[in-house]
Simulated scan of single mutants.
Amino acid sequence: MSTITNDDVRHLAQLSGLQMPDAEIKSLCVDIKEIINYINQLDELDTDGVEPTYQVTGLQNVWRDDEIIDSSVSRQQLLALAAEQSDNCVKVPKVL
């Protein structure tokens, strides 16, 4: 049985920047206890001889050579498509 208290849930809510009424804290406390008890059922499984599985698809990273491919489109043609340009570059709004 897990030992999650209402104070634990209040602390988690504070760390998360959440404001919760007492009724919601009590409800969430019950939910968290049920989740932890459900997860604790995994302790009952016999995992002797089971190898850890980190990747199940067999896929590997595929890298390609970093090559410049010549295009028939010139820089000036691409700049002409831009809504705004400045100093031979595309001008975009600030993103902060």
Rank of each mutant, 00 (worst) to 15 (best):
A82T: 04
G58K: 01
I39K: 10
P52I: 04
D22M: 01
N88A: 11
L45Y: 12
E67G: 10
E67N: 15
E34W: 05
D66Y: 06
S86V: 09
E84G: 07
L42P: 06
Q77P: 00
N37T: 09
E67W: 06
L28C: 04
E67H: 11
M20G: 04
V30H: 08
G49Y: 05
N37C: 11
S71N: 12
Q41C: 14
I35L: 08
P21L: 06
I69E: 15
S86M: 10
P52G: 06
R75V: 11
K33S: 05
M20I: 04
C89V: 12
I25Y: 00
Q76K: 09
Q76D: 07
A80G: 08
I25K: 00
L79E: 07
V62E: 06
D22A: 05
T57G: 04
L81K: 04
D48N: 14
I69Y: 14
I68Y: 02
S71G: 08
L28T: 03
Q60T: 05
R64P: 01
S71Y: 02
I39F: 15
A82C: 11
W63V: 09
K26R: 07
E67C: 11
T57S: 07
E44D: 14
V50W: 12
T47Q: 12
S27Y: 00
E51N: 08
Q76G: 04
D48V: 10
L79I: 07
P52C: 04
A82K: 03
Y38E: 14
L78H: 11
D22R: 10
Q55M: 01
I68H: 02
V30Y: 01
I35F: 06
T47Y: 15
K26E: 06
I32G: 00
P21E: 09
Q77G: 00
E51V: 08
L28A: 03
V30R: 13
L45P: 01
I32H: 01
E67F: 04
T57C: 03
G49A: 06
Q77A: 02
K33T: 01
S74E: 02
W63H: 12
Q85M: 13
E34S: 13
N61P: 03
L79Y: 05
Q85K: 13
I39Q: 13
L42R: 15
E44Y: 15
Q41S: 14
D87Q: 13
G58N: 01
Q55A: 01
N40G: 09
V62H: 00
D48A: 11
D46K: 12
L78M: 13
S86G: 11
D48W: 14
E44A: 12
P21H: 13
E44W: 14
L28M: 11
Q60P: 00
Q85V: 13
Q85L: 10
P52L: 07
I39M: 12
L28G: 00
S72Q: 12
I39W: 11
K26A: 03
W63F: 09
